[in-house]
Design a protein around this nucleic acid. Structure first.
Lengths: 209, 209
DNA sequence: CTTGAAAATGAATGAACGTTCATTTATAGA
DNA sequence: TCTATAAATGAACGTTCATTCATTTTCAAG
């Protein structure tokens, strides 16, 4: 007796081609923009004729939707399951997590920001809701830290947008092998973020473990 | 005897149509993205047939190039000619200038950031050079202020990118008539930027009037 | 009013687009 | 080996695209 979950349908190659389509579309969309990429180009990257793409995705729009929805869902799951030293404060957790995740998934992040306007309204709303959920995490950290006197933030929502914009800009200039390592970047930004929200009477902490 | 400079050629409507083309293309490119906008749409906005556009711009690409080159040149001229109270410190000048300019010209800014990848290499290089010139203004402010002990910035180039990303993100969420006025936003961001680059021993300045 | 050049028209061009579909090929289970 | 189904093919569909061009219209200067 065999488990249903592990049985592959006849004629199937699993989801291998679909994965390759996602990967090729991700690269192309990130590089040239959704509207400038043709199904023919994606098919050529995958090594298949254009028509074959439609065995895996009903339309080009659905490929974009799949990439963006998956990305936002993954982002929130990654935050929920991220492991940090117990002593690390929430703001440091968020900054390090955000930088790491966004450097690891530069293409996904880029697409999810740049191609929002190419999403149909329903899908746009889903993505926006996820984005708001993610921003709410930082807002809550700032709000609670502010209430406890650990930070001084005039407007936690504005500060959230400011910090996230600052951090999300990193992949536009950071390159592996440059004179700054990923850890250096984390430390530099963490210092700036901490100072930006610091209580006015508080000493800044230069060392960042 | 009449001045050559003021004589209009016969049959000409001055540069009126060209201006309308720029304006329509700006709105369309900002709204839907360069690749998703057709010459037919631009022509319809202008109130002219598609072929007429080619009396003013040789190709669609040239419209984009014109918009982006003009924007970057205008930005640098605006900085050079901006008027500020004599007592205002350079960092405050830059922050207020950047926010004002980017809120005033949201469409131009958006295009110059989003459509870089649709520029031909030569034009891309020109735009990038202008962007570097603009960033160098802030880097220099941070560098000199740091040397003078007014700020404490570990890496002026990284801080420049962080600050500019933070400020440039404002037009993505700021809306006129919201609960924050433009001046409120300036003050909030100025406070965060000042704190982010503050010397560690320095008291923050809360009032920004 | 005439002239001449700029601007706009209307029609057309070939190319590229997303997508469809009847048919063939590949493959895993019986 | 046979069967059933997924996957891929190859060709085509109608549409839209940026661009071209001969012709017509517009209009300031003479």
């Amino acid at each position: 007796m065999q488990s249903i979950a592990t049985r592959s349908p006849p004629g199937s190659k699993g989801q291998e081609t679909a994965k390759r389509v996602r990967k090729a579309a991700l690269k192309r969309f990130a590089g040239a923009g959704y509207a400038a990429v043709s199904m023919r180009e994606i098919a050529a990257d995958v090594g298949v004729r254009p028509g074959a793409l439609y065995n895996h995705f009903p339309t080009k729009q659905d490929i974009l939707k799949d990439l963006m929805l998956t990305h936002m869902a993954d982002l929130l799951v990654a935050w929920d399951t991220a492991q940090f030293p117990a002593a690390m404060d929430p703001l440091e957790r968020f900054v390090r997590f955000h930088i790491r995740y966004h450097l690891e998934r530069a293409d996904e992040v880029f697409i999810s920001y740049m191609e929002l306007r190419n999403l149909e309204p329903d899908n746009f709303e889903i993505i926006e809701a996820e984005r708001r959920r993610y921003e709410a995490i930082l807002t809550s950290i700032l709000h609670e830290g502010s209430a406890a006197g650990r930070y001084s933030v005039d407007d936690p929502k504005v500060a959230t947008r400011a910090i996230i914009a600052m951090l999300t800009g990193i992949p536009t200039w950071y390159r592996e092998g440059g004179h700054l390592g990923e850890h250096d970047v984390e430390d530099l930004y963490l210092t700036m973020v901490r100072k930006a929200v610091a209580s006015e009477t508080r000493k800044f902490q230069a060392e960042t473990g």
